[in-house]
Structures are given as structure tokens and as C-alpha cells.
Amino acid sequence: MSARAGVATGPAALGTDLRRFLSLTFTLAATDFKLRFFGSALGYLWSLMRPLMLFGVIYVVFTQVIRFGEGVRFYPVYLLASIVLFTYFSETTAGGVTSLVTRENLLRKMRFPRMVIPLSVSLTALFNLGMNLLAVLVFALGSGVRPRLSWLQLPLLVLVLTVLGVGLAMLLSALYVRFRDISPIWDVVLQLLFYASPVLYVLSLVPDDFERAMLANPIAVVLTQMRHAVLDPSAPSAAEAIGPDVRLLLPLGIVAALFALGLWVFMRETPRIAENL
């Protein structure tokens, strides 16, 4: 037993016991994941169904109707991979927004570091991403994509997406406790981001001026780099697309800034979360 002498108590965002923090986050995430997978007969299929359906519809439209994808190598794989990555981002943030409110019964009755809640939502989404990437892998190999060493960049890209998603989840979940219209607003923003990010199209097809501006969006950077590193080495990397390397600091700076803002707001709101719920 850790007998910490005279600890002044109060609701903490992070707490002092890292092991407990991690084990709680993991337990909550694993529970959610388990519920999703074993709660229904087709568990895994359902969670894959959403990105697959979206993929199917867009694939038909963009290759058969508009004939847009023809100039892009491995366009179907790119489409599926980018949809899966964007789904990860939207699950992290949209799930994060309501996370504190849906876990009200825990927050009002139990003592544990508050940050566990939005983090566990992100972790569940990460588990899901892992499962979905397996499907992408099978599809990619089937389409003739060759494994390359640069695939190792993928975890790094997922990390960037995770930091962005967690930062937003912290920010939005804390705000949602007080302002309940954050949730519909965020739904609209996600829609906007979906089209503003090169999910359906590839960035190299966008006029140059637009391209630079769009690369301020960290998701666009992640997807473009993914295309270069995973699918087609001849496609421009994010650094090449954005021009001088220094400019890469802008999207990364945005990620860092959003994360810092989210952390700050969450820490500030922590003491009053339970009573404002």
C-alpha cells in the first residue's frame, strides 16, 4: 500500500500514480472495445462496415462515374487507407466530445484522474484503427502494393494524428460539459474537415496555391505523407509538397498548439467537472 503522508485531495486531471492512471485508461478502453466487439453477433464486421461502405460508395463514384481516380496509382488503396485514418480521427474527437457527460455516473461517484476518460476513448479508437488497418493491409497486398521499409513511418503518422485527436478531445470534452451545442458544431466541423482533407482526392491534383494552404491542415500532411511512404514512393512527400521544409513546422505547430490548449483547458476545468455535469 502506498501510504502517502498527508495528501491534500481534490479532483486531479492526471493524478500522481502513473501506473493506476494507465491501468484505468486501459481498462476502460478495453471494456468499450470488448462491448463493441462482443455485444453484437457481427462485432468486428460492424466496426469495419462503416469505413467499408463509405469506401465502396466513393470508389464507385470516383472511378466509374467521374473517372477521377484513374491517374492516381493505387487510388482504391489510398482511398480506403485515408478513410480508415480519418475515421480514427473522427472517432477520437467525436467520441471525446461526449465522453465526460456519458461517463457521468463514474465522475460523480468515483475518484480517479479525470483525464482517463477522454484518453480511454482515444485508446478505444486506436484499437479500432489497428483492426481496420489489418483490413487495409490485406487489401493493399492484394492490390499489388509491395512492403517497404518506409512503412515504418506509419506509426509516426498515427502518432501525429493521435496527438491532434487527443488534444481536441480534451478541449472539446471539457467545453461540452458547459456548452452542450459543442457536439452538433463539432459534427459540422468534422464534415468540413473530411472534404478539406485529401481523403477522397490526392493533394497533388490540387492547384499549387491551394495545395500549400491546405497543407496547413495536419490531417492533409499525414495523408499525403502516408501516400508517399506506404503506397507510392514516386508521389510527393509532405515535405516536398509544402515547399521549403520549414513550412512543415506550421501544421506540426498547429498540432502542438491544439494539444497544449486542450491540456490547459482540461486542467483548468478539472476541479469543477463533477459538479457541472
Partner: peptide, 25 residues
């Protein structure tokens, strides 16, 4: 440690387990 207090100080020596309500969670 579920609510923060406005003023004053709470000190707890040792590990604290609230069961404010049974079977929560």
C-alpha cells in the same frame, strides 16, 4: 476528491476508497 473545495484544506493519510454508492461503474 470528487468535488474541489473553495477554501480550506483536506488531508488524508493513507489510501482512500470512496464507496459513495455501491456498484458504480
Amino acid at each position: 476528491g470528487i468535488y474541489g473545495n473553495d477554501s480550506g484544506e483536506v488531508r488524508v493519510h493513507g489510501r482512500l476508497s470512496p464507496f459513495i454508492e455501491l456498484g458504480v461503474g
